[in-house]
């Protein structure tokens, strides 16, 4: 399985019907089992790329294919920024919703229970979302995306709202699950340390619509100590500089 984006362009039209291009001629190929992060300043189109991959948005030109089949709604597992758990459904019913919607997807309650156990939430099966903490809710939202049974999972800043400690736990947790499953993950984050820690490749989006690709030379499984090796610290500084410089350039041209 490969996920291919060919020549994708997309622009939003604002109130005055002016087109505002956010993505132009984007080409990208993601292989099965890869873990990719997308980073970049706000407004560079990170979430837009993800929404294009889900089929929620249609590109102005170009196409997105999984194994030569053009993508359509329901082809990938999508986890939005907010957990968006349905407040009236129990945790078990929340993670089973995809199998209620898709007729060819059969996931039994027992399978779902096994998953809840794996993420340490088995005693919350009958709880309602409001009874769970932020980190727990993110795990539930992740399971809901996972139990769509798709090979590609798109995660839009899943840990953005969590505190630093919980975030670290969740990163290791996500990596452990990903390693067992051989899923392809596309991950948006604002946090460079997080991006380096979890990904094989980082795509850095520039405001001028250029895209830079950075390979992360770290072995798997990852450990948090690895982040402090000289090589990684330099890499992170370089990345930070790149993003920071853009802001000054942008502001100076605006002035």
């Amino acid at each position: 399985m490969t996920l291919k984006l060919k020549n994708i362009s997309y622009s939003y039209s604002n109130k005055d019907k002016q087109k505002n291009q956010v993505i132009s001629k984007l080409n990208m190929e993601i292989k099965k089992g890869e873990f990719i992060s997308i980073v970049g300043r706000s407004g560079t189109g990170k979430s837009t790329i993800l929404r294009l991959m889900t089929g929620l948005l249609q590109p102005d030109e170009g196409e997105i294919r999984i194994d030569d089949l053009e993508i359509s709604l329901g082809d990938v597992g999508y986890m939005p920024q907010k957990d968006l758990l349905l407040p009236w459904r129990t945790i078990l019913d929340n993670i089973l919703i995809a199998s209620e919607i898709q007729k060819d997807l059969h996931i039994s309650k027992d399978e779902a229970r096994i998953w809840l156990q794996r993420v340490g939430l088995s005693e919350y099966e009958h709880a309602l979302p409001k009874q769970l903490s932020g980190g727990m809710r993110q795990r539930v939202a992740f399971l809901r995306a996972l139990l769509t049974g798709k090979d590609v999972l798109l995660l839009d800043e899943p840990f953005g709202a969590l505190d630093a400690l919980t975030k670290k736990e969740m990163q290791s947790w996500l990596l452990s699950i990903w390693q067992d499953l051989n899923k392809t993950i596309v991950f948006i984050t604002h946090d460079l340390e997080e991006a380096i820690f979890v990904s094989d490749r980082i795509l850095l989006l520039h405001p001028d619509q250029r895209i830079e690709e950075i390979l992360i030379p770290l072995p798997r499984p990852r450990k948090s100590e690895m982040l402090f090796s000289e090589e990684i610290v330099t890499l992170r500084q370089e990345l930070e500089k790149k993003i920071a410089n853009e802001s000054t350039q942008k502001f100076s041209t605006n002035l």
Binding site: R51, T54, G55, L56, S72, L73, G74, D75, V76, Y78, P80, K82, L84, L86, W88, I97, A98, E100, I101, Q102, T148
Partner: peptide, 23 residues
């Protein structure tokens, strides 16, 4: 956002109405 979440799973209009908008 809730509607988009269900749409991304391939839900049709009736399913969105029944599972989301009515409750």
């Amino acid at each position: 956002e809730y509607i988009e979440m269900l749409r991304s799973m391939g839900a049709n209009r009736f399913q969105i109405f029944q599972k989301l908008q009515i409750p």
